[in-house]
Computed example of a mutant assay.
Amino acid sequence: MKKHNFSPGPAILPASVIEEAARGVLNINNSGLSILEISHRSKDFIAIAAQAEQLVRDLLNLSDDYAVLFLSGGASTQFFMAPMNLLNEDETAAYVNTGTWADKAIKEAKLFGKVEVLASSKEQNYTFIPKGWTVPSHAKYLHITSNNTVYGTQYHWWPDTEVPIVCDMSSDIFSRPIPVEKFGLIYAGAQKNMGPAGTTLVIVRKDLLGKVNRAIPSMLQYGIHDSNDSMYNTPPVFPIYVSMLTMQWVKDQGGLAAMEARNKAKGDLFYNELDANPLFNGTVTEKGDRSLMNPTFLAINEEVDKAFDAAAKAAGIDGIRGHRSVGGFRASMYNAMPLEGVQVLVDVMRDIAQKMG
């Protein structure tokens, strides 16, 4: 039976990327060696790393003013690495709290400087993106989380501010065009929309670096990683390779504009059914804040919950259960999820409504 992978991460990858990666595991570039065993200093991997960086620059239209880094430690490491590199103890960073990961980022930032939480939807269980707040001019940077995988909300607008924006884009990187010039730093764990678990993309404006007066361990300095082409230590070779293949796939599909159109089509298909189906309710209170990457929803009662869960499994749908902290269901629809997979999910929802509605 064909599987439809709605896992929130590690998540679906394009079939062609998996096939090419499998060939690379056996024999990379006809070298007679596996990508898993070649040196990160070899000509084969240096070429892969250079191509990965160039694809980031091509897809996002990045200038040389930005460094592109492939690091380890996941996006959670960036919760503290960003303020460590950008914020002095006597300076203030502005944060907006829109979910689990934003809340954790706020906690880590407080270790390095002052934090001003401009707005939060925590008291309302993160069911919307707060609006109407302003960024103080004294803020060193503004931190936001563009998409919230647990609660199913997403920014569909960007703050209007002269302050550099630091953004956790782990779950919607490369899903749509973005105005890069607004951002001072973007970070994204690969395993949701860029590649497999194991590497984290960091894009940082170079003029923001070297401005803090604290001592920072070498492995945690963006500048050192930049000057060493992300090879200050042995990088995560295989995850970078697969991320490169995935970004090439995105480019071949037509780039970020094509991804945006593809993702909007999937979102429309799913949300139209959710709004029409009497047996399910969305968890996001403001429709304009709904995520195109991680729609979240609930069955109206336990009977429907169990029936839908069983029917989804029978249809080959995998990874549809919501985050353990909130329950319900979550249909993660990253770039590689085809419209046909969403149609299978919608058909199951309709069938349940016909039988039980």
Rank of each mutant, 00 (worst) to 15 (best):
His4Ala: 04
Pro8Asp: 03
Ala15Lys: 15
Arg23Ser: 12
Gly24Ser: 08
Ile35Lys: 02
Ile38Met: 08
Ser39His: 14
Ser39Arg: 12
His40Glu: 10
Lys43Gln: 10
Gln54Tyr: 11
Val56Ala: 08
Arg57Asn: 12
Leu60Arg: 02
Leu71Arg: 05
Thr77Trp: 15
Leu86Met: 04
Glu89Asn: 15
Glu91Phe: 10
Ala94Pro: 01
Thr100Gly: 07
Trp101Arg: 11
Lys107Ile: 09
Glu108Lys: 14
Ala109Gln: 05
Gly113Ile: 02
Gly113His: 03
Glu116Gln: 13
Gln124Phe: 13
Thr127Val: 09
Val135Cys: 11
Thr149Lys: 10
Thr153Phe: 02
Tyr155Lys: 03
His156Lys: 10
Trp157Leu: 04
Trp157Asp: 09
Asp160Tyr: 11
Asp160Ser: 11
Thr161Pro: 03
Glu162His: 10
Glu162Arg: 12
Glu162Pro: 04
Cys167Trp: 00
Pro177Ala: 00
Val180Phe: 05
Gly184Leu: 04
Ile186His: 00
Ala190Cys: 10
Ala190Phe: 12
Ala190Asp: 11
Pro196His: 12
Ala197Pro: 04
Asp207Asn: 14
Leu209Pro: 01
Val212Ser: 05
Arg214Cys: 03
Ala215Met: 13
Ile216Tyr: 08
Tyr222Pro: 04
Tyr232Thr: 05
Tyr241Ser: 09
Leu245Asp: 00
Trp249Asn: 14
Asp252Met: 12
Gln253Thr: 12
Gly254His: 10
Ala257Glu: 15
Ala261Trp: 05
Lys264Cys: 07
Ala265Ser: 14
Leu279Tyr: 01
Val284Asp: 05
Val284Met: 11
Val284Pro: 03
Glu286Thr: 15
Asp289Ser: 06
Leu292Gly: 01
Asn294Tyr: 13
Phe297Gly: 02
Ala299Asp: 04
Glu302Trp: 13
Ala310Cys: 09
Ala311Thr: 06
Ala311Ile: 03
Lys313Tyr: 11
Ala315Phe: 06
Ile320Pro: 08
His323Tyr: 15
Gly328Tyr: 07
Leu339Trp: 14
Gln343Ala: 14
Val346Ser: 02
Ile352Asp: 00
Gln354Thr: 15
Gly357Asp: 10
